[in-house]
């Protein structure tokens, strides 16, 4: 039983972590919180429903196309919402992203209707059996995919020119541009990458979660909790935080109560803000003035 919860928790945790990673990259790049990130993930899920189920496009090709679409959507988002508004305060931009979220949720309604769309598992009805423990194969797949993402990301950020450029821009934008880095292109790449992360999260989420127009709000708030745990800017923090949240939710729902499951994310946010506002991985920054 515990093993089942562990695997499920890790799996959900990885998904939260991936969405939160998208948020962390955007934050490191342009210092804004994107409140529509959850809806991006749901968009990926809806696209999967259309491509894979309705139009019968093979699974792998669907994933590929969806990642490209989400990357494009992210960049369009950056160009339309972020870039023209650079002089406005970050909080104002964050509220704008809430507007985008509302807009997206209603576009979903218009295109896909308000009913909840179930996505069948690509594994059919195959279940992993370990002794008398039943595990849905989705979950281990998520964990494996996330591991690959992390490995690829580490390599990319530290061993490639583009990756190093991204880190330079995140560290100090002005210096980076003085060194000849095209900061605008790097920022767009950051947004595109966060779009891909979110796409993967949404695709893997679709079969195990409710796919409906308002799901984005649920994801958003959980991703926020992870973002706070990660102190907004810690890449490992996003993954670890996601896992902590996933495990807390699954174990909490099982042993405490399932109605208050949602309260776990909010409880985490509040506790962290009260006692360690700079996140689990940031240095303690006292707000003096």
């Amino acid at each position: 039983m515990v093993i089942q919860l562990l695997v499920n928790g890790l799996g959900m945790g990885c998904i939260y972590g991936l969405v939160a990673l998208g948020l962390v990259f955007i934050w490191k790049g342009v210092r804004i919180v994107n409140f529509a990130q959850g809806d991006f993930a749901i968009l990926a899920g809806y696209l999967l429903a259309s491509f894979y189920i309705e139009w019968q496009i093979p699974y792998v090709i669907s994933i590929f196309i969806i990642c490209i679409i989400l990357a494009l959507v992210s960049v369009i988002f950056e160009r339309l919402v972020y870039r023209p508004l650079k002089n406005v305060s970050s909080v104002t931009i964050a509220v704008c992203t809430v507007g985008v979220s509302i807009f997206l949720q209603n576009i979903f309604q218009i295109i896909w209707g308000g009913m909840f769309i179930p996505i069948p598992s690509i594994f059919g009805s195959y279940l992993i059996m370990v002794g008398d423990i039943v595990i849905r194969p989705e979950y281990p797949l998520i964990i494996v995919v996330t591991l690959f993402v992390i490995i690829f990301q580490q390599y990319f950020l530290y061993n490639t020119v583009q990756g190093k450029a991204m880190r330079a821009v995140e560290a100090d934008r002005d210096v980076a541009s003085l060194m000849g880095i095209d900061t605008a292109k790097v920022v767009s790449t950051t947004f595109a990458y966060s779009g891909v992360l979110t796409a993967l999260a949404g695709i893997m989420l679709a079969p195990i979660f409710f796919l409906s127009t308002a799901s984005g709000s649920l994801i958003r708030l959980k991703a926020l909790a992870v973002l706070v745990m990660a102190g907004f800017a810690s890449v490992p923090g996003a993954v670890v935080g996601g896992i902590i949240l996933g495990l807390s939710e699954v174990f909490g729902a099982s042993y405490i109560s399932s109605e208050y499951k949602e309260a776990i994310s909010f409880g985490i946010i509040i506790i962290i803000l009260l006692f360690r506002p700079s996140g689990l991985f940031g240095s303690t920054v006292k707000k003096k003035v």
């Binding site: 919180v33 706070v228 907004f232």
Partner: peptide, 23 residues
Amino acid sequence: PTLKLKVFHFAIGTIAFGQIIQL
């Protein structure tokens, strides 16, 4: 406790509080 935080953290904190209350 919340007004000691920076503006963004305050916003998120109040969001979390609001959600818990609604729950």
